[in-house]
Design a protein around this nucleic acid. Structure first.
Lengths: 185, 185
DNA sequence: GTCTATATACAGATAGAC
DNA sequence: GTCTATCTGTATATAGAC
């Protein structure tokens, strides 16, 4: 990995902050402090807060998309690929964070149209990946629910589980989602 | 319904605001404006913002709990009672809001320990109601997943669906959850 | 219970020097 | 690309009159 410039470090700190406490409670001052510069310098990289929101969603989408691509390219069966998909969420839960886009979804009223569109694209990408996987393995499915509906339910289930598990302080919801999802394949 | 005093009207406005845009972006000034009083008068009813958060969660929990009680007392079968449970979320989705406690869960870092405990109780109550329903109708279940795990997955699924449906602008996730849940009974 | 007035802190954002 | 300095707005919260 190349040496990170301040823009990268700002995005790292911002993503962390959003996944922990949300976009509304993120401030340019706190961000600047963490990176060791002044808040006016943050505005050099992201003129308005909306520019930062947009950059974070695009960056997060690209990172997750790459992970999904890696999984898709493995010579694994349906079940193992589903487990790898769920493991993305388990990784997030382990550090007591939620999905960046799940958090942004809760705060959608604070986002402009550009960011909302990117957010929509993220979830559609997450769902389409599942649809492709399920359709390619349709004969292994143990349910009458269509691949489209099943994908939609799986994704929203995992996003919701991350949220509720921070309240309960364990991973019971994520584990339950995993049980349910794997019972269907 | 009795005439609402300003405290009630403040709670109404606050709940609405939280379900639309979150607790962090709620301010005593905006709240006061909506009710037609001054922000200092809001502090009379809720000395600190944390007092308001706590009151909102308790009030919301009581309201939903009452609805669940009504459903439980009906002479309905498992399927119809599940549909009524889901309908609570559909009502929320129709007005493009999310569950108050789902939103608070996303913003849990802004809550004090008292409120976090109340939030935990809300979700545990929602799950226990489902567990009781599923256990009482165990022979009708079309899955190997335990009632506890199934309840946990159903609740987090519905909460997540409300969140994601505001991004997509339709009720596709909630409908998908409904399809999946009803396919299991 | 509500008001005016105010204290204090912090937010996003910009101008201009280096 | 970062800084100092500052503008303007808004946040939570409190004191004290009515």
């Amino acid at each position: 990995m190349a040496i990170k410039d301040n823009r990268d470090r700002l995005e790292d700190a911002a993503q962390d902050s959003v996944q922990l406490s949300g976009f509304n409670s993120l401030s340019f001052r706190k961000l600047a402090d963490e990176v060791g510069i002044k808040s006016s310098s943050v505005h050099y990289h992201f003129p308005e807060k909306s520019d930062l929101a947009h950059a974070l969603i695009v960056r997060y989408s690209a990172a997750v998309s790459e992970t999904l691509n890696d999984i898709a390219n493995q010579r694994w069966g349906l079940r193992r690929k589903l487990q790898a998909y769920i493991a993305i969420f388990e990784q997030t839960a382990k550090s007591e964070r939620v999905c960046l886009c799940g958090m942004m979804a809760a705060e959608i009223e604070a986002l402009n149209d550009d960011s909302r569109k990117q957010l929509d694209l993220f979830f559609k990408m997450m769902e389409q990946w599942l649809v492709d996987l399920l359709v390619a393995n349709g004969d292994a499915l143990n349910t009458d629910v269509t691949p489209a509906a099943l994908s939609s339910a799986i994704l929203s289930g995992l996003e919701g589980a991350l949220l509720l598990d921070r309240v309960s302080g364990n991973q019971s919801h994520l584990n339950a989602q995993k049980d349910l999802i794997l019972s269907l394949v």
